[in-house]
Structure formats: C-alpha cells, structure tokens
C-alpha cells in the first residue's frame, strides 16, 4: 500500500518535471514563459520557507526579507563590485544565509509569538535600511540596469527568455533535491523531533539552538539564490519586495500548499502565480486582485486549514494501515500537548 503510494508520487513528480522541461517548446510566448519563471522563483522561496516554518516549526515571518536580501546583494555586487551576474546570484544566497544567522541570534532564545514578531520586525528593519541608504540602494527608486545573464557569448535575453526559463527550472530542481535531502537526513529528523516534542528531543540530546540556527541559515540560502536570480532576471531591485503583498502572497503559497510538505508549496506557487495573473488580466479586476487573493486565502484556510495538500494526504491516510492511523493520533496528541504547554 505504502509502496504504491510513493510510487504514485514518483510518477506525478516525474511527469511534472517532464512537462516543465518540454513546456518552452509548447509555450513560445515571452509573457507565458515569464510567468513560469516568476512561479519557479516563488516556488523556491515558498518551499525553502516551508523548511523553517513547516519542518522546523519556527514561526519565521521574515523569510521574504531573506529573499529581499538576496535581491539587493546580487544587485549591489554587480553594481559596486562589478561581479559577474552568475557570481551575483550565488552571492545573493550567501548574503541571505548571513542574514539568516543574524535573525537566528534572537530567535533561538525565543518562543511562539515572540519569534513571529521579531522575524516580522526584521523584515521591516531591512526595508527601512534600504529606504534610508538611498545613495547606495537607490531608495524608493531601487537599483536599475543590472547586467543580464550571459554564458559563452550567449545573451539570455534572446530567444524569448528560453535560457532564463531553464536557469529558473534548474535552480528550482536543485533547490528541491537539496530540500528533500535535508528533510530526510538525520538533521531533518531532529528538526521534526524538536517541532513535535521539544522537551523529549532536548532530553535526547538534540541541541535546540544550534539546530534552529542551522535551519535558518540553510533555508535562507536558496531563498537568497532565488532573490539573486530574480534581480538578475528582472534587471531591477526594488524595495517593493519587502512589502506586505509579496509577503502575504508567498506565505499563502506555503500555507495553501500545506506546511511540512515541500512539494505542496511548490505546486501552490505555480497555481497561485498564474491564478493571481489571470485575475489581474480580467477587465476591471486589475486593481481589486489583491482583495480577491486575500478573500481566497481566507476561504482556503477556512476549509483546508492544513493546506490543499491535506486533501491528498487525507486520501492517503484513509488508505493507510490502521496502526499507522493510531500513530498519527498519538503524534497529534503529543503536538497538542506541546502546543498547549507553550501558550
């Protein structure tokens, strides 16, 4: 039973990858390819966010700030250091990881709502910094004319973003493989143990603070890479990425997709990017799109509080053996107990 389910999943994943690889041959239009590229970038951010939020259970609300740090790090390094755009993308990841370590300092000592507030305030702080240092960051204007990607004399702007599409897809695939690897490693197991029953995990010798620090640094890396790529691809860095709309959109991808699933947020990122764009293209809805997304977010949370992925999981659970269902009940109890204790 279990095998057939995971076999099922492998099939779905393989099919999705094949479709994604072949897509540019079907979709020749720049606009549609652009949407896919943006969706892949958001998918990286959302799935990496899921690592710290869903797997490690850190109520981290500053993840979009890591993305923004990546954007600005890449933009600034091309502008002031004359870095090659490929290097700049990588530097975006490095800078975001450093930011992750910085945020971890207070976060590892705090719990629950304190973590929400500190990480949230961190994002606002970065925004303030960007706005105040306008000689360097361009303030509200942002940074423009960032150099485009090039490899062996091929400019990626050519051929209707054909090249960019594959770079985005490639980064997403690497990031996802990396996330799956992290989640299945001993490290990933210890994160889940900490999330589900901190006292027990600590008693078993799992160092809470160190694991939280690591997960924030790790989950920030590909987020920053996504940010770096975003800057290089769009050739601008603008402070809007720190705003509530982006924050809420990506967060809704994580929660709608289902926390602690990795694939859920990726799927939700693709769906929501297109849904949001479709809504925007309807006559007269352009302005109200944000409002519609907000309503949709609430409706999804009302009916699927564990994310849309829970529909799939619920079906899988029903099929699962009775004893594993019992295990799930026992596990939820544990979680409930620990949640109750933390309030």
């Amino acid at each position: 039973m279990i095998r057939s389910l995971s076999g099922n999943r492998a099939f779905v994943l393989g099919a999705a990858l094949v479709i994604a690889v072949l897509m540019p041959f079907v979709v020749q239009d720049t606009y549609w390819r652009h949407l896919f590229i943006i969706a892949f970038i958001y998918a990286m951010v959302a799935s990496n966010w899921d690592l710290s939020l869903g797997y490690a259970g850190i109520f981290n609300f500053g993840h979009v700030a890591f993305f923004g740090v990546g954007v600005y790090a890449a933009a600034l390094s091309t502008k002031f250091l004359g870095a090659d755009p490929w290097i700049a993308i990588f530097l975006g990841g490095v800078a975001a990881s450093l930011a992750g370590a910085l945020v971890a300092l207070p976060v590892i000592r705090l719990k629950g709502i304190y973590v929400v507030l500190v990480t949230f305030a961190f994002g606002q702080l970065v925004l303030q910094l960007v706005l105040s240092q306008s000689e360097i960051t361009g303030g509200t204007q942002g940074i423009v004319r960032i150099p485009a990607l090039e490899a062996f004399g091929y400019n990626f702007l050519r051929d209707f973003k054909f090249g960019y599409y594959y770079v985005a897809l490639g980064l997403l695939v690497i990031s996802t493989i990396f996330l799956r690897f992290v989640v299945r490693s001993d490290f990933g197991m210890s994160l889940r143990a900490l999330r589900d029953n901190e006292e027990y995990a600590v008693a078993r010798g799992i160092p809470t603070g160190l694991q939280r620090l690591k997960v924030l640094v790790v989950s920030a890396f590909f987020t920053g890479v996504a940010g770096g790529f975003f800057a290089i691809y769009l050739r601008v860095a603008s402070p809007e990425i720190f705003g509530f709309p982006v924050q809420s959109l990506v967060l809704s991808m994580v929660l709608v997709g289902g926390t602690g699933t990795i694939y859920g947020p990726i799927a939700a990122a693709v769906i929501l990017t297109f849904a949001s764009e479709m809504l925007g293209s309807i006559e007269g809805l352009d302005e109200g799109r944000v409002m519609l997304i907000a309503v949709a977010m609430i409706i999804v949370l009302l009916f699927f509080p564990n994310g849309l992925a829970s529909i799939w999981r619920r079906r899988a659970q029903r099929a699962a053996l009775a004893d594993s269902a019992d295990k799930a009940v026992a596990e939820t109890r544990l979680i409930e107990n620990s949640a109750g204790a933390s309030r």
Partner: peptide, 8 residues
C-alpha cells in the same frame, strides 16, 4: 495569515 489577509 487570516488577519494579514484582512489587512491586504
């Protein structure tokens, strides 16, 4: 999440 949505 929901109150963020209300804010938006």
């Amino acid at each position: 999440m929901t109150t963020l949505a209300v804010m938006m």
